[in-house]
């Protein structure tokens, strides 16, 4: 039998104030898959992530995660079902130490998802191991990005929503980030990441969904998008 997708989003709509941002987004993520949600700024990538995570009040449509309808649940309930969220603006708890940041994310292990401990995460992100007692506010942007991801992993999620992981990072840190994403995929984690950086997305994702004006315009293997210059030009203007 074919396993049902881990995440299925159908006809997702969302509003900011009176502005209608998402006009019916459909996408899915299979178990173990890395999907890149691509698109111009303002196309609705971040809004899609927030709406899936339950962080927007004004939303409609269905979100099914791991066999459950989560579209009406508050964020903390969604998170407890094993959906992790890494925001684009990092939002590290600046007053808390690295260890305490990880503690906030901690949830019980979940069958069918990789199980994380602080020690395993320090092995994955050696930078963090050297600064366990440092406060989040005293870390560089790249270190904060690593911490945010590690913090979310402490919840032992089966799927992580990774919003713009390469944004605002120096090229060297972007390479480290891509490395981390590939490692996580090898651990069996599913990832939905939003990206504008085609080379980053191309390096880590199996499949690409291109969003434009609140709707998905392209959904296919990453390879296809990379090879199809017309599609890239039409959707991403590169």
């Amino acid at each position: 039998m074919t396993a049902a997708p881990l995440l299925t989003v159908r006809n997702l709509q969302a509003w900011y104030g009176r502005a209608h941002i998402l006009m019916g987004v459909d996408l899915q993520v299979d178990r173990g898959e890395v999907v890149a949600l691509m698109g111009r700024n303002g196309a609705g990538k971040t809004t899609t992530m927030k709406a899936v995570m339950g962080l927007l009040d004004a939303r409609a449509g269905s979100v099914t995660f791991d066999g459950r309808d989560v579209s009406a649940l508050p964020p903390h309930r969604i998170a407890r079902h094993g959906l992790g969220y890494v925001p684009e603006d990092r939002r590290v708890f600046t007053d808390l130490t690295v260890e305490e940041n990880l503690e906030v994310g901690r949830q019980p292990p979940r069958p069918g998802a990789p199980a994380w401990t602080p020690e395993r995460l320090y092995a994955l992100f050696p930078n963090l191991a050297e600064m366990r007692g440092r406060r989040g506010g005293r870390m560089s942007g790249g270190e904060q990005q690593m911490l945010t991801l590690a913090r979310t992993l402490m919840g032992n999620p089966s799927l992580v929503l990774l919003d713009e992981p390469s944004e605002g990072l120096a090229p060297r840190i972007v390479q480290q980030m891509a490395e981390a994403v590939r490692t996580l995929k090898a651990e069996g984690l599913s990832i939905l990441l939003s990206e504008q950086n085609l080379s980053f997305a191309g390096a880590v994702a199996d499949r690409a969904c291109v969003i434009e004006k609140g709707r998905i315009r392209f959904d296919g293997p990453m390879r296809t998008l990379l090879d199809d210059e017309d599609a890239r030009r039409a959707y991403l203007a590169v």
Binding site: L55, H76, A79, R80, Y85, P87, V104, G105, R151, G155
Partner: peptide, 11 residues
């Protein structure tokens, strides 16, 4: 510090 982020982490 960040109510919304904490809730997205399951709190």
């Amino acid at each position: 510090q960040d109510r919304e982020m904490a809730s997205a982490l399951g709190v």
